[in-house]
Nucleic acid binder design. Structure first.
Lengths: 214, 214
DNA sequence: TAATTGCTCCCTCAATTTCGGTATTTACAA
DNA sequence: TTGTAAATACCGAAATTGAGGGAGCAATTA
């Protein structure tokens, strides 16, 4: 029989914690090596129980699940953390991702999907409910999109020059790179400044990067 | 009996296309209002068939699925596009997200999950396979995280000056803002350049923004 | 054909930035 | 006490940039 994957549980609700424990016991391929109501002795317990995956509630007294995830990932980067929570607000999703969570389930997820999610993690995936995935995409897009792009009506050459500038090149280097005269670069820069309504290189770079013009 | 959700299919592989069509026919709550091998008459067909969801292959002759998604979302933002593809490389995922796809399935997904994914979309979710979700998270994090921060050992004042610079301020304006001499700003800038290993304002700003030092 | 747009190049000049120094004060730690 | 780090400030020269002007050429459009 193949070795079972060790899972430990952090969940303050006793009823749920015990249900999850039971679920793991009856599952194929997983075993519960610990179930805790809080993260007070976090590092000790996970270095003792040698878990490969932690099932982590967010809302807990003391150290919350996000903090716990950060701690775990900083000390044991290989351990996967599967976040489970009743809430699905953008901020906690965002923070969980940044903390290094491998997946994110809502507590409304039916038990059989918990086991499936654990399997997904084992095979390198990042299970999340579609509603969470939706929010991640939205977060992703706001962080990515504003790209007014067309707004400024930069020509191709102007975009090229701006692109080079954001790489930290000087006028001279850009001229060299694009095989055109330094004077032409100056002309392009003047036009770029006019179109972007800026008055210096740093300002142009800041605007270009922040609005993803390049 | 409740109205069925109209779905149309864009898929160049005839066999798969017909399978999907059949799948929709036998499903509860969905009906296929069109199945096409390419996107040549994209806008005509979707304004005719009044689909709520498009099942979209990426690899197609002529207009590909990403382009098609952009077109659809720009003309009919309310239509959901569910991408399905054999490939799962970062670039196509990234582009699909930017194009406004509502979900992203691999063709290895079993048929019953296709219907489930359609239901997820209907209820406002963004279905994706765990492996896709994993990549999205990774994309998300590289775009977000590197924050080496401590690496450069910038002092508080230096960070402040750099911050102002990314706002497009000139030395003089920064001096004024921080209530210190222009000469001091020059000193700070010199130190910032040394620490960041850059040689100009634009380069410093680019590095600061990209590595989220400010 | 005439007008416009994008790309190219040149000139001048003032302002700003970059880089090389030096130096003082404060604060904190060895 | 001595040493170090941070913040402050100044000088000066060399280099770069920013803003103003003008102007030619090719391609496109009206």
């Amino acid at each position: 029989m193949e070795p079972k994957t060790k899972v430990c549980i952090f969940e303050d609700n006793r009823h749920l914690r015990e249900s999850l424990e039971l679920l793991l016991q009856v599952s194929d391929g997983f075993e519960c090596v610990g179930a805790y109501a809080n993260c007070n002795d976090l590092l000790e317990v996970i270095s003792e129980n040698d878990a490969a995956i932690c099932l982590m509630d967010i809302e807990m007294p003391g150290i919350n699940g996000i903090e716990a995830t950060k701690i775990i990932k900083s000390k044991f980067p290989k351990i996967h953390v599967l976040i489970q929570t009743v809430f699905s607000n953008d901020d906690s999703i965002f923070q969980a991702i940044c903390a290094g969570a491998s997946g994110y389930l809502l507590k409304t997820t039916p038990p059989e999907l918990y086991v499936e999610a654990l399997r997904d993690i084992q095979s390198g995936g990042a299970p999340m409910t579609p509603s969470i995935a939706k929010r991640v995409l939205q977060l992703f897009k706001v962080n990515l999109q504003p790209t007014s792009d067309a707004t400024y009506q930069l020509t191709d050459k102007e975009k090229q020059v701006l692109q080079q500038l954001t790489l930290g090149k000087s006028y001279k280097m850009i001229a060299d790179e694009l095989q055109i005269s330094l004077e032409t670069i100056k002309t392009h820069m003047k036009n770029i400044y006019t179109k972007l309504h800026v008055h210096s290189g740093p300002e142009a770079v800041a605007k270009a990067i922040q609005e993803r013009l390049v």
